[in-house]
């Protein structure tokens, strides 16, 4: 965490309107039993940047993602996506609204090949009709072909073309993390939540992951990143929110965060581990 880290300025290809509120979290809370996993947290994610959410293990980062994605229901507060209240929408409809996420605990489609897994992401905007599917109508054939093309392109982009027809049990951990990202990108999200994309990766893989994240943002996808690798976070995030014991501790640019006394105390006291297995 020295000042010698070079900050990359990333200019998005699609210039967003300045300060467009892509995601807004208002007083969000959720407890599990007695544990206040997320406690009255508010912040805004503006379009077209890489934002990071950091904090010690158990701070509530994954829970916050689950709340935003609709996997867990909040006990209080609101989630606004593109200035629309999505607090009561099911997960699938948030996907329709342009939200995607990757998982800390990998969720693989073990019945599908890598190609098919990514195709599932691409189907977000294709013909969902069950009846047409039974009769393999031209609309279905076209949806299949388009999804296949997009999936192949994305597999190439994340460097998984060699695993095209592999099942998840035949793929290494690092590859599965990139597959998860390709699946999310296939849905062409506006906002991508990434939960510890570099956890469990070796330094070389981490560097590749960093480039991939930067590249995703360059393509115009806003990224909200949860990550313990501080070097990675500090080098690509434009703004950082710090969470500790369910509460927002600080918010600011990497420089501001580095200097924040609360953060330093939490880091030294709580001991952010650089990696979790």
């Amino acid at each position: 965490m020295t000042s010698s880290i070079v900050r990359l300025r990333l200019e998005p290809m699609i210039a967003p309107q300045p300060s467009h509120r892509l995601l807004e979290i208002r007083n969000l809370s959720r407890a599990f039993g007695g544990v206040k996993a997320v406690n009255d947290v508010s912040f805004v994610v503006t379009a077209g940047r890489i934002h990071a959410l950091i904090g010690p293990n158990g701070a509530g980062k994954t829970t916050l993602f689950n709340l935003v994605a609709g996997v867990v229901r909040p006990s209080a507060g609101q989630v606004l996506l593109d200035e629309r209240d999505v607090t009561d929408l099911p997960t699938a409809e948030r996907a329709q609204a342009g939200l995607q996420r990757t998982f800390q605990n990998l969720q693989t489609f073990s019945e599908l090949t890598a190609l098919e897994s990514v195709m599932v992401g691409a189907h977000l905007r294709s013909e969902p009709s069950f009846l047409k599917a039974l009769f393999n109508t031209p609309a279905i054939r076209q949806a299949n072909a388009e999804a296949r093309d997009r999936a192949e392109m994305l597999l190439q982009r994340v460097g998984l073309d060699t695993f095209r027809d592999s099942r998840s049990d035949a793929m290494p951990y690092g590859a599965l993390k990139r597959l998860d990202i390709a699946r999310a990108l296939a849905a062409e999200p506006k906002l991508l939540l990434m939960d510890e994309p570099a956890a469990g990766l070796n330094p070389a893989e981490t560097a590749t992951m960093r480039d991939l994240i930067a590249d995703i943002a360059l393509q115009g996808v806003t990224v909200l990143l949860v990550e313990h690798d501080m070097k990675l976070v500090m080098s690509i995030a434009e703004t950082i929110v710090v969470l500790d014991q369910g509460q927002k501790l600080a918010e600011g640019t990497p420089d501001e965060i580095r200097r924040s006394p609360e953060v330093i105390r939490a880091y030294l006291g709580g001991g952010i581990r650089r990696r979790r297995s």
């Binding site: 599932v120 992401g121 189907h123 699946r183």
Partner: peptide, 26 residues
Amino acid sequence: NLVNSPAGRSLRALHSSEIAAATAGV
């Protein structure tokens, strides 16, 4: 036909992870 369609792929996806399938928009 169904198995090899978007709807069928969604079914096979939710088999192993309903959360990930929903996230993908299923």
